[in-house]
Computed example of a mutant assay.
Amino acid sequence: MSATTAAYRAGWHRGLVEFRQSLTSPGDLFSTLFWPLLMVVVLIFVRDSEFGSSGLLLGTLFLPSVIGMNIAANGMLTTAGLLAIEREDGTLLRAKATPNGMQGYVVGKIVTVAGTTLIALLVVLIPGVFLVDGLAIGSVGAWVGLAGIVALGIVATLPIGLVIGSLFDNPRNAGLANLLMLGVIGISGIFYPLTALPTLVQWIAQVFPVYWLGLGARSVLLPDSAAAVELGSSWRTLETVGVLGIWAIAGLVLAPIVLRRMARRESGSALAKRREQMLQRTR
């Protein structure tokens, strides 16, 4: 077995262990379930509201949009938060000191975040199919399409999370990323169709993967008639795959470079200095 294969296998097992631990830790479990459960509550209140004169229920549009939002939020924010925490507690430094440890570390994060993403999706999707009418979920193609969106979304957003997390020495500073993410979500057609927003906002929203993940989820879970409320009255499937693919390629190219540079700056003295600064703040 090659060293790289061993590192990937170790990362896979590490990711599974971290995922199981997250399901037994009250704090981690709360973090994983809070937003999905909150979105289910919002869904209950909006499910019977109509979107303009389209004849479509707002809840029907909202459910797949939230699924896309959860993919993006877990891929970017969860990954960024984990990286910032593990940079401070020395986990990243130990990975750097292990042969091919960084590869195993990244594989472990992919497994952990993929697991938490699936849990968050199920928390929204399972009650959603009973609460919302008009979903086109009666075919195998719809579920295959959803699986494809989830996989592409994780690949497109997780490297972004690694890049974001590498920018923060302190996990507390990662709260800024949360605020920026909430702003992007607010303009991405998650809570209300993008066609109802100003043109400038529409253009800005289409730069980020959140909008395209919501659109992709709607395209596989809603009937074709629902495309009438989208930009251009189309699901724009090729554009969705293209934009998410660009984000994925850019992230996969950029993330290893940023992580390597960050890892080179990690040392025992740098870790001790951050811990001393943390202790001074708590005194």
Score class of each variant (00 low, 15 high):
W247G: 00
T199Q: 06
A196L: 08
G183M: 10
V258D: 06
D224V: 12
A227V: 03
P209G: 06
A205D: 06
V201K: 07
G245H: 02
G183I: 12
L221N: 03
V210W: 01
A255Y: 09
A217G: 02
G232M: 07
P198D: 09
S234M: 01
L197G: 00
I246L: 15
P256A: 10
V253P: 11
E230A: 08
A228F: 10
V201F: 01
A250C: 15
G245Y: 00
I187Q: 02
T199R: 07
V184T: 12
A196K: 00
V184S: 02
V184Y: 03
L200W: 15
E230N: 07
L254K: 08
L222Y: 03
S234D: 15
V229E: 03
G242P: 04
R236A: 13
P193N: 06
F208R: 10
V207N: 03
R218S: 02
V201L: 13
G189F: 04
V220W: 06
L222D: 07
A228N: 10
V207Q: 00
T195W: 11
I246P: 12
M262C: 12
G232C: 03
I204K: 09
E230Y: 03
I246E: 07
P198E: 06
L200D: 11
Y192L: 13
V229G: 01
T195A: 11
T237S: 12
L238R: 14
E230V: 00
G214C: 08
I249E: 04
A255C: 09
V207A: 09
P198G: 02
L215I: 14
G251R: 11
L244C: 10
A248W: 04
T240D: 08
